[in-house]
Simulated scan of single mutants.
Amino acid sequence: MMLRVGTIIPVLGANKISFAGALVFAAGLGAIPHMPDAISLGAIVLIAGAAFGALDVAMNTEAAALESRLAKSSMSSFHALFSVGNLAGAGICGMLLRQDYNIASCLGTAGICVGALVVFAYRRSPSDPQSFQARKVGSSTRTSYNSAENRRLLLLGGIAFLALFAEGALCDWIAIYLVDILHTTESTAAFGFATFAGAMALGRSIGDYCNNRLGSIRVFRGGALIVAVSVSCTLSTGNLALVFLALFFAGLGISNLVPRIFSSAGRSQSIPSSVAMSRVATMGYAGLLLGPPFIGFIAQSTSLVTSFVFIAVAMITVASGSRLTDWSKQI
Rank of each mutant, 00 (worst) to 15 (best):
R124H: 12
V179W: 00
F193L: 13
S307A: 15
A319W: 08
Y285V: 04
P36L: 06
Y145E: 03
T188I: 07
T109G: 10
S322F: 01
S264R: 00
Q133M: 11
R260K: 01
L3P: 03
V137M: 07
I47N: 00
F308W: 14
A265Q: 09
V227T: 13
F78V: 13
Q133D: 13
A189E: 00
V275K: 03
N239M: 09
E149Y: 08
G53L: 15
L117M: 10
S303Y: 12
N102M: 04
L202P: 09
S144T: 07
S274Y: 06
A199M: 08
K329C: 05
P259W: 02
C106T: 07
A166H: 13
R323H: 02
G94W: 11
T185P: 00
G168R: 13
V280Y: 02
T7C: 00
A189Q: 10
A58V: 12
R69E: 04
F308G: 09
L324I: 06
T7G: 01
G203Y: 05
S270W: 03
I174S: 08
F19N: 11
M59D: 01
G198C: 04
P126R: 01
D37P: 08
A58W: 09
G222H: 11
G30D: 04
L225M: 07
A50S: 10
N146I: 05
V243R: 04
F52W: 14
L46I: 06
T109I: 07
L304A: 07
S147A: 11
M35D: 12
F249R: 09
A71L: 03
